[in-house]
Structures are given as structure tokens and as C-alpha cells.
Design a protein around this nucleic acid. Structure first.
Lengths: 169, 169
DNA sequence: AATAATAGAGTTACAATATAACATCGCCGC
DNA sequence: GCGGCGATGTTATATTGTAACTCTATTATT
């Protein structure tokens, strides 16, 4: 299994996105293989759409872009693929905008800290485990048992922040 | 302005909820007063419903419980009140369940770390600022500017955790 | 290869959540 | 009183997410 830890600021810096996306796709394939799950055409197609860039897409945006080839447009299909991909740790749900973003951290199933730019929509993902363990610690102090965490911040990515600065200094 | 920092595990421990709720209501009144905002009947009524206990309610659950007195049932009204209350820091939105919970930390406008029990629905709120500043720090390292944070954990409160243990050890 | 078991796809219909747009009301300062 | 403005009331609609059921494809078993 590949175990490449992507630079968190990857989406913000210029890079060869074609290989970035194809690596992630190959990784997805490997992950499914290793867990005896089927990486079907629908699942692949949805992931591919999300891998187009480092932005989050809503389920209905995916629905629109999806090639239905004569079949009837059904949100269910998209949600099923998304649920599967999320359970495999290949995409993350962005709760603050009801959207989904491909995961480029080619590591095992994991939580994520997401930074979402409210202007351009780019999503930066950090693997910062300290936050997650602090959350765990906090929970344990009160007897809480955590099943899943949600860590997001909404704001401006560096370039949109500069642009906003320029307009409203 | 009152500045009482509630014990984060308040919702989990037996307490005089009547006074707990009425304190929060009085606080809300004071907050609005001090910021020259009107604490109208609709806003008060929605907050009162949320103050019934330490659980989150969906907007449509509030809609159902709301006393409309002849007026037509409109989600908009509920959302408007919720938006206002949230902007005043009197309620928090629980993104993981599209719901809203009253805030019992009688302090100035603030973010929150929410622990949500997926069994009984109780919401525990922590004022842990370390998490928030860690998030800020992480953001700054990548040039991100944060406007708002979303910190939630879903799991089991102590008593539901014990119950789950008993069933499935 | 035939067959049973199961996971996924396809389809229709619908539930749940949230907002747009616009008219009207009521409070506050003048 | 009146003008401005924030809040309410109303209708309609947009957006997001599931239920329920059938059918097909893949895999395991014989």
C-alpha cells in the first residue's frame, strides 16, 4: 500500500495536477483491492469528478456533471458512491458547505482537518493529529466516547486573502 | 454583563435545569440589550424551546413545537430567529446533525467545541481555546485566514456509552 | 457449468433542510 | 405625523438527502 503524505498546502501551490489526480486514482484502486471492495465504474466516475481539482463539489453538482448515458439521473447513485468513497477514506465530506472533496493524502483511513476557502472553494487538508488527539483527550475528561470528529475552518486561502486585502484594506 | 463559565459537563450531571434555563434567558436579554438588538417574541420563543434541555433541535422540530397562534407555519421565521441567535452567540449550529443547540456558556460571542451523543442527543459544549488557537496556528502556517471554525465530535455520552458497553461488551 | 448468496445498480417517489422575493407592520428618532 | 429601518408574514421554491423496491452482475459453492 502506498503511504505518501501529501504536503497540506499542495492545493495552494502550482503542481502537476494530472499526475496528482492519477496517483490518487491508482491509490483508490489499490485501497479497494486490498480491502476486497469493488471499485466499480460509478464509484470511479464520481471520484474522478472530484479529482478534477482541489475543490469540493456538492452532490447535485456531481449529479449534473455525471455522464448518465441514457440512464435516469438519480441522486441516490451519487450519494451511494460518495458514502462508499468516504467509508474508504478516499473523499471527505465538507460539512460547512454540504459538499465533498477528494482526498489526496494517500494514507490509510483517517480523519481530516479541512480548511475551506469561502471565495474560491479550494480545500486544504491537514493530517495534524495533535488536534484530533486533543479532542479525544477533552472528550475522555468528561467520559465521552468519540466515534467521529469534524474539524473544519472556513476563511480565505492565501491568494483570496490578498485579493480581499487589496479591495478592503 | 454576566460572565459565568458553565462547567462543560453540565448537561451530563443532574442540575436545577429550571434556573439553568432562566439564567440563560436573562443573559440573552442582557446581551441583546447591550448590543442594541431587539430580543423579540419570536426570538425569545425559539430560544426558550432550545433551552428546554441540553439537546439539539432541528429547525423543523422547532417549527412543529412553535406556537403559531393563527399565523401560517413558515420555516423562514424559525431560520431567521436562529440566524439572529447564532450571530449573538446564544445558540450554536450542530453541523453534524443539521440542528441547533442553546448555549449555556454565559460569555461573550465565542466559538465552541461540541460533543454530540448520537444515542440520546445531548450536546456538551467546551470552551477549550487551545484547540481553536491550534487550528489558527495551523492555518497561519499555510497562509490561510480563518473566519469561522467548526469543531465537533460525535459519539457517546458517559451514560449511553455504559449502556452500549452492557449490550455489546 | 449450474446455482445460490450477495453486493451493487437502476428507478420512482418522497422527505428533510433551507432560501428567495416581496408586501406589511411597528418601533424609533426627528 | 412621518420617514427610515429592522422585523414579521406569506407564498413559493430551491437544495440536499433517503426509502423502498426491482433487477443485474459478481462471487462463492457445489
Amino acid at each position: 500500500m502506498t503511504q505518501i503524505a501529501a504536503d497540506p498546502s499542495l492545493p495552494l501551490s502550482p503542481h502537476d495536477h494530472r499526475s496528482c489526480a492519477s496517483d490518487a486514482l491508482a491509490h483508490a484502486e489499490a485501497v479497494c483491492e486490498s480491502r476486497n471492495k469493488r471499485f466499480t465504474e460509478n464509484r470511479r466516475a464520481v471520484l474522478k469528478l472530484l479529482l478534477d481539482d482541489h475543490r469540493a463539489l456538492g452532490a447535485y453538482e456531481i449529479l449534473r456533471r455525471f455522464d448518465w448515458g441514457g440512464r435516469s439521473r438519480a441522486p441516490v447513485q451519487v450519494y451511494r458512491a460518495l458514502d462508499f468513497l468516504e467509508s474508504m477514506g478516499l473523499v471527505h465530506r465538507v460539512a460547512s458547505s454540504n459538499a465533498y472533496v477528494a482526498c489526496y493524502r494517500l494514507a490509510e483511513r483517517h480523519g481530516a482537518v479541512l480548511f475551506v476557502c469561502e471565495t474560491c472553494g479550494v480545500v486544504m487538508e491537514c493530517g495534524e493529529l495533535n488536534l484530533q488527539s486533543m479532542m479525544d483527550k477533552l472528550a475522555r475528561q468528561s467520559g465521552f466516547t468519540i466515534h467521529s470528529q469534524l474539524l473544519e475552518a472556513v476563511g480565505h486561502c492565501p491568494s483570496c486573502a490578498r485579493a480581499a486585502e487589496a479591495v478592503d484594506p
